[in-house]
């Protein structure tokens, strides 16, 4: 399939036409998003936002934002991520405090679970007469 990459959409101007690329700082940040957050100059710290959309449901990661402190982060999250009644509860955590598993270890971390099908209820073929189980 032929897929064109260069699309001058929304300012996507390639470098040979004057659209510079941003400086990338490679860091070993511990954030799950892998970004270069430390020493971010005058930027306020980055926070990850988790929102519970309805009572009784888990908080779900919805995105991130910048804020000077936790209180501001919660308010910013309210203003940015719940403008359309998306939430009833907000958690924020500074991105640098999140530790993520290493994708290179995915095989050793998750694949061992693949052959433990007996942990799933559908593994058991029970008599049809049996109800309420």
């Amino acid at each position: 399939m032929e897929i064109r990459l260069t699309k001058y959409y929304y300012g996507d101007i390639p470098e040979d036409k004057g659209g510079g690329s941003n400086t990338i700082k490679k860091t070993s940040s511990s954030s799950p998003n892998g970004g270069g957050r430390d020493g971010a100059g005058a930027d306020w710290p980055l926070w990850e936002v988790f929102i519970r959309s309805k009572q009784g449901i888990d908080h779900k990661h919805v995105g991130s934002l910048h804020a000077a402190d936790a209180q501001m982060a919660i308010e910013n999250a309210r203003d940015v991520y719940t403008r359309r009644m998306e939430g009833v509860s907000i958690w924020v955590v500074e991105s640098k405090f999140i530790h993520a598993s290493n994708p290179d270890e995915a095989a050793s971390l998750y694949e061992p679970a693949n052959d433990k099908v007996y942990r799933h209820p559908t593994f058991y073929d029970l008599p049809d007469e049996l109800t309420h189980m």
Binding site: H66, M72, N76, D79, V80
Partner: peptide
């Protein structure tokens, strides 16, 4: 002064 606050004051 910063995107997050632009959004806040508009709210």
């Amino acid at each position: 002064p910063v995107l997050e606050q632009d959004i806040a004051i508009t709210n």
